[in-house]
């Protein structure tokens, strides 16, 4: 028996919003520790890694490991039926071929349940190697989303260059070029609003705007985003979801021809 209850359905709605541009279907792996999802997009350019810890749920029970292959389009349709203030409970029997979503309004006057067929997805499980990163940049997630959106108007790629002076986001295209430089916040009063740069070695890498914009769909999950970069390895864009887990996106850099 698997049962996971969240007081706020909005977290699950936002998680789905944050992955549905990259993935059409995905496997939710549930065990004692919580729910994990890990999948590459069709073109093998980006990987999504989601963790929702058991202790972040209002109620969590998982007697046996459960693997649920879900069509994310169908899941989105179902979650649209939940009010933002509704609680959501996901339920599945052991070895079941369906999952049930139960939505309850705050006053319990409206209770709805939606049963969805599971898919048998034969997806490979991937191991993410432990990596020491040369640069990590933390900044307000809204600021990162704004930069990606602004720079996307000019070109298809963004060059991220991190040096001890700060971090620079650049792009160029038919109409011209654009650069945004961010320096580390001088005095940190509010951690959520700070830009914090840790650099062991300078790194410059080029990434596709389109993917960075997909990642920023996670903005509402977290006030801050962390970018981790090293030469010749995928960029990690991490949003920590308060009290429950994280969503991490890995993105292969563009390479010089």
């Amino acid at each position: 028996m698997f049962e996971a209850r969240l007081l706020k359905s909005s977290i699950l709605k936002k998680v789905l919003e944050a992955i549905k541009d990259l993935l059409t279907q995905a496997t939710f792996d549930c065990d004692d520790n919580g729910i994990q999802l890990q999948a590459m997009d069709n073109s093998h350019v980006a990987l999504v890694s989601l963790l929702l810890r058991a202790d972040g749920f209002d109620k969590y029970r998982c007697d046996r490991n459960v693997t649920m292959g879900m069509n994310l389009g169908s899941m989105t349709k179902i979650l649209k039926c939940a009010g933002d203030k509704d609680t959501v409970t996901m339920k599945a029997q052991d070895n079941a071929d369906t999952v049930t979503f139960v939505f309850e309004s705050p006053n319990q006057e409206k209770v709805s349940d939606y049963e969805m067929k599971l898919m048998n997805l034969d997806l490979e499980h991937l191991g993410i190697p432990e990596t020491e990163y040369s640069c990590t940049i933390r900044m307000p997630s809204a600021e990162f989303a704004r930069m990606c959106r602004d720079l996307s108007q000019f070109g298809e790629s963004i060059v991220i260059s991190c040096t001890k002076e700060g971090v620079k986001f650049s792009t160029s295209g038919d109409i011209g070029s654009a650069n945004i430089k961010l320096a580390q916040t001088a005095s940190i009063d509010k951690e959520d609003e700070a830009v914090i740069i840790e650099m062991d070695e300078p790194v410059t890498l080029t990434f596709a705007c389109q993917y960075l914009n997909y990642f920023t769909k996670a903005t509402s999950l977290s006030p801050q985003v962390q970018l981790s970069m090293s030469a010749d390895v995928p960029l990690v864009v991490e949003y920590r979801i308060p009290d429950i887990g994280h969503i991490r996106y890995y993105l292969a850099p563009k390479i010089e021809e």
Binding site: H44, V45, L47, H125, G127, P129, S157, A252, K254, E257
Partner: peptide, 14 residues
């Protein structure tokens, strides 16, 4: 010019 890299090779299939 640049070309889009792939993730294959970075992650190990378990």
């Amino acid at each position: 010019g640049t070309t889009q890299g792939r993730l294959d090779g970075f992650f190990k299939v378990l």
